[in-house]
């Protein structure tokens, strides 16, 4: 018995159940959960729909991105004009240092060539690459990726390394006909095997969504210090060896890697066509088109003894170029840093 005559069993006015509305709400929330689960397990339907959507919206995004990229370029130019005098002084000093390095590099190159000829070493195969523009910045709170206007029609496959003028940017994780999604180095799911410093210590660089990358699995006695250069090791059998990744920062025990490439403002990137047995197995050339590098019938003949660069003939696509340390670059062909 309740005091004041308020009984817990007093019938309350029953709220009318608006069946269609409530059912719709439930269905929508339930759909979200189902979609999240399907996305988590990487269901093919989700991947296909996402690829189709990216393909569909690519022209629109490309058109919308152009003025923004131009505006960013203009802003950068204004900034460079403002600090032009300081920049000239800095470049003069840098030029002096580089002249010394150029002399050393030429000497080293002569030595390497001589030693290679003594060893009868096989030259590095040339790498093909295609350059494209960033059309969408698909970065979320727990994702770091971009869309570029190169796809399977241009020979792009899943797993190819993507670089810009400064260094490694990421790798392709999705490829449609005209667009491809690049997982940036800073993404949580990015893991790149690397070699660090002069000692060539092997380690793993992983993203954590921040501007700097984590340097993990360094050997205990590795002589690594801040300022050491980090390159891809190629030991994953997917990425080419020797691509510049970044520079070591931080202190022992908490080393980080600051990427050479500015991952915030990417405009133009290049996809390296580096076919390896691992890559060919994970992304067979089923959707390949005529003229696409991944369509080459020679892919099946790649030796199983480790990573090797694609040596398929240069395709007709004008955006696909060639780079390689062993060949002098032809006019208009840019050489990648390796």
């Amino acid at each position: 018995m309740m005091r004041g005559g308020h009984s817990p069993f007093k019938p309350r006015p029953r709220r009318s159940w608006r069946a269609p509305g409530e059912l719709l709400n439930f269905t929508l929330y339930f759909s979200c959960v189902v979609l999240l689960v399907l996305s988590r397990i990487g269901h093919n339907a989700v991947v296909d729909v996402r690829d189709g959507f990216a393909e569909l919206t690519a022209p629109l995004l490309e058109a919308a991105s152009k003025p923004v990229i131009m505006a960013r370029g203009a802003a950068a130019q204004v900034r460079s004009y403002i600090g032009a005098f300081d920049e000239i002084d800095r470049l003069k000093a840098e030029n002096e240092t580089l002249k010394q390095w150029q002399w050393r590099a030429k000497l080293a190159e002569r030595n390497v060539t001589h030693l290679r000829s003594l060893l009868n070493a096989v030259g590095e195969p040339a790498l093909h690459y295609a350059s494209g523009s960033v059309i969408a910045d698909a970065r979320g709170p727990f994702l770091r990726s971009i869309l570029i206007n190169l796809g399977r029609d241009h020979g792009v496959r899943i797993g190819y390394a993507v670089i810009n003028g400064d260094g490694l940017v990421g790798r392709t994780v999705d490829a449609g006909g005209e667009v491809a999604r690049i997982l940036l180095l800073s993404d949580l799911n990015s893991r790149i095997p690397v070699v660090v410093g002069h000692g060539g210590a092997r380690a793993l660089v992983s993203g954590d969504n921040s501007a700097e990358l984590k340097l993990e699995f360094l050997p205990d006695r590795a002589s690594v210090k801040a300022g050491d250069e980090v390159f891809t090791s190629g030991s994953d059998g997917v990425l080419p060896r020797g691509l510049p990744v970044g520079v070591v920062t931080g202190s022992p025990g908490a080393f980080k890697v600051r990427p050479h490439a500015d991952l915030r403002s990417l405009d133009e990137v290049s996809v390296l066509f580096f076919d390896t047995p691992t890559l060919t197995r994970t992304d067979p050339p089923v959707l390949a088109q005529d003229g696409a590098l991944s369509a080459s019938a020679d892919d099946d003949e790649v030796p199983e003894d480790g990573p090797s660069a694609s040596v398929s003939p240069r395709p007709a696509d004008s955006r696909i170029k060639q780079a390689g340390a062993s060949r002098a670059p032809a006019e208009g062909i840019v050489q990648t840093r390796q």
Partner: peptide
């Protein structure tokens, strides 16, 4: 859901937040 597609993240994430 369109935001999910655009962000490249898991489908249903921003759809849930939008609801």
């Amino acid at each position: 859901l369109l935001t999910d597609f655009m962000s490249g993240g898991p489908l249903g994430f921003w759809a849930l937040m939008a609801l």
